[in-house]
Write a protein that binds this DNA or RNA. Structure first.
Lengths: 136, 136
DNA sequence: CTGGATCCCACGCGATACTG
DNA sequence: CAGTATCGCGTGGGATCCAG
């Protein structure tokens, strides 16, 4: 339960004139939140459709129930998605992206598109780099 | 520790289409690379202008020389930026973003814009969440 | 000035077991 | 089904010292 450990004890920095490189800048904050291993994937899925816990777990290859749980709670806290429990016999809970989250998703998707079309070039660059710079 | 990952030799790209949640998807790979604490900030700065090591270090609040060094090398390996050593007396090295990197940057900037305009809403959502869910 | 090598700790995250 | 609680490890990343 100590997930929200954002001490941020640092005091305000002098100039941040629109630049996003100071500690307390929005950019850093965003990166701190969705820069983890699973947030983007979850938002991506919920962008497609509302989804239940178990469904998310089975669609996201390799996520543990602990991390799914933690990440969902974190995203809910950030107002990027909402939680909808249904009092059926075995309780079911579905998650839905919020307008705020959907808006962010628009930006994220451009990143994803880049990944799908250009990651091969990255792989090639890596191979080249490793070949030239003595691999030993 | 590898579960039944359908690694069909040849075009495993197809299966990922629209389903970027498998382990070997471009999306995951990208996230693994630039999902760290500093990559995005560095790309953002180099998107503005070519820059030297020391300059980057002073502009990015809080980065250690070790991490700057590591991240730069990693980004260079990925083909997102290039390194340009100048044989002056005390060696100077400048870094320049590549077309590939600049292209990614376009997508990243949308994310940054979102952060600058909407992070306040996130903060508000957090405050609300923490108030309702007994902070103890 | 650039950046490698080391030491070391915090914590992200996975594995497992338990509950309502 | 949808979580929570606990334990443990791997590693991201900061601090510091060293070198070309």
């Amino acid at each position: 339960m100590q997930d929200g450990t954002f001490t941020s004890a640092g005091h305000l920095h002098e100039t941040c004139r629109g630049d996003a490189y100071a500690r307390d800048c929005p950019t850093r904050q965003l990166l701190d939140r969705i820069g983890d291993k699973w947030s983007v994937l979850i938002l991506l899925l919920l962008g497609e459709e509302e989804m239940r816990f178990s469904r998310l777990k089975q669609r996201i290859d390799g996520i543990s129930q602990k991390m799914l749980s933690h990440t969902l709670r974190s995203l809910e806290r950030d107002g990027l998605l909402t939680r909808h429990p249904v009092a059926t016999v075995p309780v079911t809970v579905s998650y839905r992206i919020t307008p705020l989250g959907r808006d962010l998703l628009g930006a994220l998707r451009m990143m994803i598109d880049w990944a799908e079309t250009r990651m091969s070039e990255v792989a090639a660059a890596q191979a080249r780099f490793d070949r030239e710079r003595v691999p030993a």
